[in-house]
Amino acid sequence: MNYPKNVGGTDRIIRGVLGIWLVVVALAALLAGQRTKAAIAGLAGIGLLQNAWTQFCGCNALFGIDTTQ
Protein backbone atom coordinates (compact mmCIF):
# COMPACT_ATOMS: atom_id res chain seq x y z
CA MET A 1 0.00 0.00 0.00
CA ASN A 2 1.34 3.45 -0.91
CA TYR A 3 0.93 6.14 1.69
CA PRO A 4 1.61 9.82 1.01
CA LYS A 5 4.94 10.99 2.40
CA ASN A 6 4.66 13.29 5.42
CA VAL A 7 8.07 12.90 7.11
CA GLY A 8 11.12 14.58 5.63
CA GLY A 9 14.13 16.78 6.20
CA THR A 10 15.34 17.25 9.74
CA ASP A 11 12.36 15.31 11.13
CA ARG A 12 13.42 12.23 9.17
CA ILE A 13 17.05 12.51 10.35
CA ILE A 14 16.02 12.93 14.00
CA ARG A 15 13.70 9.91 13.81
CA GLY A 16 16.48 7.82 12.26
CA VAL A 17 19.08 8.79 14.87
CA LEU A 18 16.67 8.31 17.79
CA GLY A 19 15.54 4.99 16.32
CA ILE A 20 19.09 3.68 16.14
CA TRP A 21 19.81 4.93 19.65
CA LEU A 22 16.70 3.22 21.05
CA VAL A 23 17.60 -0.07 19.38
CA VAL A 24 21.06 0.12 20.98
CA VAL A 25 19.44 0.88 24.36
CA ALA A 26 17.16 -2.14 23.83
CA LEU A 27 20.11 -4.41 23.14
CA ALA A 28 21.96 -3.13 26.21
CA ALA A 29 18.86 -3.60 28.37
CA LEU A 30 18.40 -7.13 27.03
CA LEU A 31 22.00 -8.01 27.87
CA ALA A 32 21.45 -6.59 31.38
CA GLY A 33 18.39 -8.81 31.85
CA GLN A 34 15.86 -5.96 31.73
CA ARG A 35 13.41 -7.53 29.30
CA THR A 36 10.56 -5.03 29.74
CA LYS A 37 12.81 -2.04 29.12
CA ALA A 38 14.36 -3.83 26.15
CA ALA A 39 10.96 -4.56 24.61
CA ILE A 40 9.68 -1.00 25.01
CA ALA A 41 12.86 0.61 23.70
CA GLY A 42 13.07 -1.90 20.85
CA LEU A 43 9.50 -1.33 19.69
CA ALA A 44 9.87 2.45 19.89
CA GLY A 45 13.17 2.35 18.01
CA ILE A 46 11.82 0.10 15.28
CA GLY A 47 8.77 2.35 14.94
CA LEU A 48 10.91 5.45 14.50
CA LEU A 49 13.16 3.69 12.00
CA GLN A 50 10.08 2.59 10.06
CA ASN A 51 8.86 6.22 9.98
CA ALA A 52 12.24 7.43 8.72
CA TRP A 53 12.49 4.65 6.10
CA THR A 54 8.97 4.95 4.66
CA GLN A 55 8.70 8.72 5.22
CA PHE A 56 5.20 8.22 6.62
CA CYS A 57 3.88 8.69 10.15
CA GLY A 58 0.30 7.86 11.06
CA CYS A 59 0.24 10.44 13.86
CA ASN A 60 1.43 13.14 11.48
CA ALA A 61 -1.36 12.15 9.08
CA LEU A 62 -3.93 12.19 11.88
CA PHE A 63 -2.96 15.73 12.94
CA GLY A 64 -2.35 17.05 9.41
CA ILE A 65 1.40 17.56 9.91
CA ASP A 66 3.69 17.43 6.86
CA THR A 67 7.44 17.99 7.27
CA THR A 68 8.49 17.06 3.72
CA GLN A 69 9.00 20.65 2.52
Rank of each mutant, 00 (worst) to 15 (best):
G16A: 15
R12G: 06
L18H: 01
F63A: 13
N2H: 10
I65D: 06
C57N: 04
L18G: 00
C57D: 06
I20F: 12
L49V: 10
N6W: 04
L18P: 00
C59N: 12
L62V: 01
V25F: 10
V24S: 12
F56K: 08
G9L: 07
R35D: 06
A52K: 01
V25T: 08
L43A: 15
Q34S: 07
K37A: 13
L62P: 00
V7L: 07
V25E: 08
I14V: 15
G45T: 08
I20W: 02
L18M: 14
G33M: 05
L43G: 15
K37H: 09
C57S: 11
Q69W: 10
C59F: 11
I65P: 03
G58N: 12
L27T: 05
I13G: 00
G58Q: 13
A28H: 04
A52P: 01
G45H: 04
V7C: 04
L48A: 10
A41Q: 08
A29K: 08
G58H: 11
V23K: 01
W53G: 03
K37D: 11
C59H: 09
F56E: 07
A32P: 00
I65L: 15
Q69Y: 11
G16I: 02
G58F: 13
F63V: 15
Q69C: 08
T68Q: 02
A39P: 01
D66P: 09
A26E: 04
A52V: 02
A61M: 05
A32W: 04
G58K: 11
G16K: 01
L62K: 15
D66S: 10
L48H: 03
G58W: 13
V17C: 11
A61G: 12
Q50E: 01
